[in-house]
Amino acid sequence: MTATTLPPGSSRALHRNLPAYAEIVRNRLKVSIAYRQNSLFLLAIVVVQIFILKKVWSALYATQSSVNGVDRHALLVYLTIANIQGWVLQDPTVSRYMYERVRQGLVAFDLVRPSGFIPQMFAQLMGSTLSSMMFVLPALPIIYFAGTLGAPASWSAAGGYAISLVCGYVITMMLTLIIGLIAFWTTEIFGLTMLYRLVSQFFAGALVPLSFFPGGLRILAESLPFQSTVYVPVAIYVGRLSGLEMARAIIVQLAWIAGLSFAAWAMWRRALFRVVVQGG
């Protein structure tokens, strides 16, 4: 087997194509710097949302210091971190980018490149995450005043958060990939990506922690993958989930990673055939 015939997914191919992926990441960063005005306005929306949530929840907590076993400070830290994290990790433009490539037939060029299509999309996602981070870090002092920032509840909470955050990020990537892959079947994806953003934000617990959801809604939220992207890591961070509960939540996250990876893989295999049909 010569080097050129390595299947894109193999580890040697991945290693060889690393410079190509780094270039995709770099390009993403350049794009967001070129359009920094827009990125800043979009970040401003998140900061305003954090501020609103702080004020609304503070008014709600006006007469109580602890509700449902959640004290006010922990809740405000939760909401602030959940919203920053949600903004950094999730980028609907990558799904839309996939859709544009498919619609314009440019996906053919992506497919013939020696670096695999899926890793290319992951590189896009990582690039957008890095660029979001680039904007968030200097904004942290403003976010500190708009919302409430605080240290993790304990050392084990910090460690658990790190692990759970990585799992949450992989789940977010898989979901974005699946939404993007739908473009191979449908002719329109804009409505779907917007809808996904709204639904996932609500069920991820970015506005209301899942522990405040009423009965039926909570069961629904817990059976969806979205809670594993934001609620689980941030609830670990503030000490809401600890010990056995924390371990259980991380196992559920790993199960979602396995399930969603399989779904994405199955979709991708079929999507390839769709491309052949469209190109024929």
Binding site: V56, L60, N68, V208, F212, F213, P214, L217
Partner: peptide
């Protein structure tokens, strides 16, 4: 959001 929150508070 308002509905979920006001059920509680």
């Amino acid at each position: 959001f308002i509905w979920v929150v006001l059920r509680q508070f």
